[in-house]
C-alpha cells in the first residue's frame, strides 16, 4: 500500500505530485482500502467476555460441556446433579437444534434448566448463552452447566464466557477422536472419558486415547467416568469442587458477590 496517501497502488509508477492523470484519479475515486484487522469471532468474543466478567464477579463456576452426539452428556449431567445432592445450587443451560427433551430431563432432577434451540445452528454462541443466564439468574457462588449442542467440531470455536471447557468422549466412539477432531481437544481443559462400564465389551484403548489427547493438548486433564456404574464420579466431583473453590476465592478477593442477589439481574446489561 502507498504510505503517502493510503491508496492501494504500488509505489514505483505512482507519483505524488497531486496532479494525477485523469484515469488514475478515477481509480482513486472508485475504491479505497479500509484496514479492519478484526477477528471474525470478535462479536461473539465480546459477548463472551461480558458473560465471563459477570460470572467471575458472582463467583459462579460455569462449565461448558461438549461432545459428539450420543456421548452421554445429559446422562452424566443428571447423575452429577444427583451426586451433588443439593450441596451447591445448580442451574443448567441446554443446547440442542430442536426439542426441549434434555431440559425436561434436567428439571426432573429438581434444578432449573433453560433450553436453547439453535435451529440450523450447530453450536451455542455467547449472545444466546448471555440471555439464558439473565433469564436463569443463577445465585452467586453457584454452579452453572452449559450443555452444548452435540458436535465435536463447531462448539470448539465459540467462546461462551465459561470458566472451563469440558469435553466428553465415550469409549464407544474410538480412541483416535482427539486426532480427528483436534480443535475440540485443544480448546478443552478437562477430558472426561465416559461409559467406562462398557470397557469389557468394546475394544477401546484408554491409554492410547489419553496419549492422543495429550499430543493435541499437553495440559489437558483427564478423568475416566461412568454415570451408570459410578466409577470415577468422585474424581469428577472433586475436580468440580476444586474449581468451585478457586472461583469463590477469586470472587471474594474482588469482593463483589454480596452486592448481587442473582447474576445479571438488574445489572442493566445491554446485550443487543
Amino acid at each position: 500500500m502507498c504510505t503517502t496517501c493510503g491508496c492501494n497502488e504500488a509505489p514505483p509508477p505512482h507519483s505524488h505530485d497531486h496532479e494525477p492523470s485523469r484515469a488514475r484519479q478515477q481509480v482513486h475515486d472508485a475504491t479505497r482500502t479500509v484496514s479492519v484487522g478484526q477477528d471474525l469471532l470478535a462479536v461473539n468474543d465480546a459477548h463472551a467476555a461480558r458473560n465471563r466478567h459477570e460470572l467471575a464477579h458472582a463467583g459462579i463456576l460455569a462449565l461448558n460441556l461438549m461432545s459428539g452426539p450420543g456421548a452421554g452428556k445429559t446422562t452424566l449431567l443428571e447423575q452429577t446433579i444427583r451426586l451433588l445432592d443439593g450441596r451447591v445450587a445448580v442451574a443448567v443451560i441446554e443446547g440442542d437444534q430442536q426439542t426441549s427433551r434434555d431440559a425436561e430431563r434436567i428439571r426432573a432432577t429438581g434444578v432449573p434448566a433453560i433450553q436453547i434451540n439453535t435451529g440450523t445452528g450447530c453450536h451455542l454462541d455467547a449472545h444466546g448463552v448471555g440471555r439464558a443466564i439473565e433469564e436463569l439468574a443463577p445465585p452467586p457462588l453457584s454452579l452453572l452447566f452449559i450443555e452444548n449442542v452435540g458436535n465435536l467440531v463447531c462448539p470448539a470455536a465459540f467462546d461462551l464466557g465459561e470458566t472451563r471447557k469440558v469435553v466428553i468422549l465415550s469409549i464407544t466412539e474410538g480412541e483416535d477422536k482427539p486426532l480427528k477432531y483436534p480443535h475440540m481437544f485443544a480448546a478443552a481443559h478437562l477430558l472426561l472419558i465416559a461409559k467406562m462400564d462398557l470397557l469389557p465389551h468394546v475394544g477401546f484403548d484408554v491409554d492410547q486415547c489419553i496419549a492422543y489427547a495429550k499430543r493435541v493438548n499437553p495440559a489437558l486433564e483427564v478423568r475416566c467416568v461412568s454415570a451408570h456404574s459410578g466409577e470415577g464420579m468422585d474424581a469428577w466431583l472433586a475436580w468440580i469442587e476444586r474449581h468451585q473453590a478457586r472461583c469463590r476465592e477469586e470472587a471474594r478477593s474482588v469482593g463483589h458477590t454480596h452486592h448481587h442477589d442473582g447474576v445479571f439481574r438488574g445489572a442493566n446489561v445491554n446485550r443487543e
Binding site: 475504491t31 479505497r32 482500502t33 484496514s35 479492519v36 484487522g37 478484526q38 477477528d39 485443544a186 499437553p218
Partner: peptide
C-alpha cells in the same frame, strides 16, 4: 495439523501461526 512433535526434543510444539480467522481489510466505494 494442529499438533506436532519437535523431531529433536520429542516435545509437543506450540502453534504459532495458522489458526487466524481475521478480516484484514475492505475495498470500499
Amino acid at each position: 495439523e494442529l499438533y506436532g512433535i519437535c523431531p529433536d526434543c520429542g516435545v509437543p510444539l506450540e502453534v504459532t501461526a495458522g489458526t487466524e480467522m481475521r478480516l484484514k481489510e475492505l475495498e470500499v466505494a
